[in-house]
Design a protein around this nucleic acid. Structure first.
Lengths: 336, 336
DNA sequence: TTGAAAGCGCTAACAC
DNA sequence: GTGTTAGCGCTTTCAA
């Protein structure tokens, strides 16, 4: 309750507050014995220096922020776990924000951070909208930003993601090799990087196999499971695809539910594969084929890069994109 | 880059910094026109007040912390989503920490918070250990704490959790009603509230049915999936249970894997039910019976309570436990 | 309604 | 090695 300060400590010990302050910093000249005395007393009365006073002084917060669009799947929880682990190991604290795919939420969150609250920001982009001026705010403040998994088309800074183009290409090719002729693609927002890149991989595989890219087999989805179920049911009924490649896990789950409901057999009538970090994909009926991204590693790496960038903001090295290899796991849902 | 301050703004506008400061607070006398001018200029040059200076002054951080043992399942991600949503709607920021079930991590995290960094803390307890003195630190600082899901036996403060005793009792009774005679219980750490309460519910159901409580059917597990798989395999082989009640999801998943590996049929040879917030429990083979806690609501409620407690720390109302009803979903894995 | 000034708790020259 | 002192940027009396 009582707000202890270094002055209180100093008085009790008959020292000045600067000496007490020094005891809590490294690399400063202080008599080891004095330091020990101070730390012992601090321990005894339960004192530790007020972080906001320190932050104000140092103009550093030792805090980073994560902004993600959703929390619905293992990908993000694993990534956050990686982020938090690295951050904490380096003495940083991690603020978390969920935008629910609303860019305006992302913008308002970013605005609330651009006043010294954080030293760096990690974002997985929340959606469309041409206006990413909120990112400009961080740039003006010199607050480094790294994106992971999802970035905006026009983002020129650092970005860690999976090798989604290749993975999507290989996943589609796998379906083709398993005799699929009408492969539907369930897309998310194409304004977000992964929406576009994954679709490009899908299209390349079709082209390479000299199969037509049929726009009617490409379904643009929304952030509403019920609506998506309807749309997927409509797609299946009208277009009779023999395979579905879902760009994100929740669309594959919806597809499986639709299939069950309509007595469509997987994989006999319809094969399914999707991007997913689900650790129990093998226990689903039927075992779900997945493109599994290294979520935890991605979280670790994006944080390492961010912290490095914070140390050396001008280094161009951190403005590049890094692609981590995903793992393709073919199981019953996509096999002939 | 350039660190703008209220003084810069004041100079540009020919005002004093106190007037500028007032423009950013509500409930103070300031000419509306002046305020508008100030805010317009702030917008133009992209200024917002340094939060650490404000926090230092106000001795409030507008920040809370969540400390959880793991991030492995939907329960925690949903709960965090609820916490963050409520916190943000009230203007609070949310720090997140994962202890990996290590009480010493919990302790060191708490220590790093007890210096003004946060105004309140939400914890789901990380494990055993008799020494919870780190919580004392927060109490001394007058930082309110609320637990959710998992609390320590000796915790006397606020606690929001599921009606686990009743749910465990009903889940066990359900197995009994489905002709199970040898119901194994997979326990987690009994020093954490839910470890004990859930087991109590299980035992009560057995007693009520006049079935013996067999210690050899109760497996204490550890935080290591491989080890647990071995132990579960051993249990199944030696004790031949006809049902497993897993106190947490990951133990049920491990059990299913063991069963598959050993060609044990679920539910014919072995029925399974567990606590879980898995949203695709119905898609697992076989569809998994679960006790589903209202994770998101729990996150919301614990946060509301914490924020209320922060306003009125002496109100005993927030020292009580609140039990939210879980939902029992019986599916193929536990049915005759 | 606005300005001047003290101070939140800590840090880092600078002096001794 | 330790003490003195001047702020970090903001808020808030108090006076005008």
């Amino acid at each position: 309750m009582s707000q202890l300060t270094i002055v209180d400590l100093a008085k009790r010990l008959g020292l000045s507050k600067s000496t007490v302050s020094r005891a809590f910093r490294d690399n400063v000249d202080i008599n080891p014995a004095t330091k020990a005395r101070i730390l012992a007393m601090a321990e005894e009365i339960g004192f530790s220096p007020n972080v906001y006073a320190s932050s104000l002084k140092a103009n550093k917060s030792l805090t980073i922020a994560i902004i993600i669009p959703e929390f619905g799947n293992k990908f993000f929880s694993q990534a956050i776990k990686g982020i938090e682990a690295v951050a904490r190991s380096k003495g940083y604290h991690t603020l978390i924000y969920v935008t629910d795919h609303q860019v305006q939420n992302e913008a308002s969150i970013v605005r609330s951070l651009a006043n010294g609250r954080v030293d760096g920001v990690i974002i997985s982009a929340s959606g469309e909208g041409k206006d990413h001026s909120h990112l400009q705010l961080l740039a003006e403040r010199g607050i480094p930003v790294m994106f992971f998994d999802r970035a905006y088309d026009d983002w020129k800074g650092g970005y860690i993601t999976g090798n989604d183009f290749d993975s999507a290409y290989l996943a589609t090719k796998h379906l083709i090799n398993n005799a699929c002729k009408r492969i539907a693609y369930l897309a998310i927002n194409p304004n977000v990087s992964i929406g576009k890149v994954r679709k490009d991989g899908y299209e390349k595989a079709l082209q390479e196999a000299e199969m037509p890219i049929r726009p009617e087999l490409i379904l643009d989805t929304v952030n509403d499971a019920e609506q998506n179920m309807k749309d997927i049911a409509g797609l299946i009924e009208q277009e009779k695809p023999d395979a579905i490649f879902a760009s994100v896990e929740r669309l594959a789950i919806s597809s499986i539910r639709v299939a069950k409901r309509h007595a469509i057999r997987i994989p006999e009538d319809l094969k399914i594969i999707c991007f997913s970090c689900l650790d129990i994909a093998d226990l689903i009926d039927p075992a779900l084929s997945v493109v599994k991204q290294p979520a935890y590693e991605m979280g670790e790496l994006v944080t390492k890069y961010l912290l490095d960038k914070m140390e050396d903001p001008t280094n161009d090295k951190f403005a590049n994109s890094v692609y981590l290899n995903s793992q393709l796991i073919f199981q019953k849902s996509s096999l002939r």
